[in-house]
Simulated scan of single mutants.
Amino acid sequence: MTVEVERKFVCDAEVMGKLQDIGAKCIGQRQFRDQYFDSPDFILTLKDFWLRCREGLWELKCPAVSGTTPDNDTETLCTRYREITSFPLIQSEVGRIIKEHTAEGSESNSSQKTERCSYMLERETGAVRVDLDQADFGYCVGEIEVLVPEGGDMNAALQRITSIAEELGLSCEKKVKGKMDVYLQRYRPEHYAKLLSAHIL
């Protein structure tokens, strides 16, 4: 199982040029639709578990346990999630979480379409992926991503991400919202407010 270490950034008109300037290679463009699922009382997302179906493929993002902590800025700007893609394992994990509560079943919570352009940067320390996403509700966000084997060196991954962010001239002031955060804020304000109160977002 892998852990996805990721830092989001605001896309602007200059970012593609910057990526080419620092040697990024475009590895493809695609369009996909995500459907997210949760129980009626948001059992999964209030525990920071995100159940998604993307073009028929299921994935459960689970909070990853942090290893040693780097400086606060780096820690705050990046997210870390274990990714479960085996359907039986997803069923088992979701069943375990829901069983701890009284609610039964889950319902579709949101659906969004995204156009993605992906880049790969090869560095001595390893490859780093950059995705530029344009959501169908008008939000554009970039993601710098490194996959780490579970139990692997998180600090090294965070350093690689920070290095690419610096090459792209990104500021380190505050965490940038992901597509799902913005979607919930705009279209599911009650759910968004509960996630804020629980310090998930």
Rank of each mutant, 00 (worst) to 15 (best):
A156C: 07
T102V: 14
M120W: 03
E166Y: 11
Q31M: 15
N109V: 15
T162A: 14
E143S: 06
P63E: 01
E145C: 02
F37G: 15
T69W: 04
L158Y: 00
E100H: 12
G152F: 05
F137D: 07
D153K: 03
T85I: 11
E93P: 12
I200M: 11
V146P: 02
E150M: 02
I97C: 07
Q31G: 15
K177W: 00
G169F: 08
L89T: 12
D48M: 01
V128T: 04
Q159W: 00
G142S: 06
V128S: 01
R123P: 03
L168A: 00
A156R: 00
I22Q: 11
S106E: 12
Y81S: 09
L196K: 14
D181V: 00
F49C: 04
S39H: 10
P149K: 03
C140I: 02
A156W: 00
L51F: 05
I97M: 05
G67N: 04
G67M: 04
L184D: 03
K99M: 10
E6A: 04
S86R: 09
T69C: 08
E145F: 00
S118T: 05
E190W: 08
D71K: 03
G23T: 13
V130K: 01
T162Q: 14
S66K: 07
R123H: 09
D133C: 06
T69A: 10
S197M: 07
G126E: 03
I144M: 06
V15C: 11
D133W: 04
E55N: 10
E93D: 13
G95V: 04
K47R: 10
W50D: 03
L196W: 08
S171F: 05
S118N: 04
L158M: 05
T114I: 05
A127Q: 12
L89K: 15
L168K: 04
G126A: 06
T76S: 10
P63I: 01
D71S: 02
I144R: 00
E166K: 11
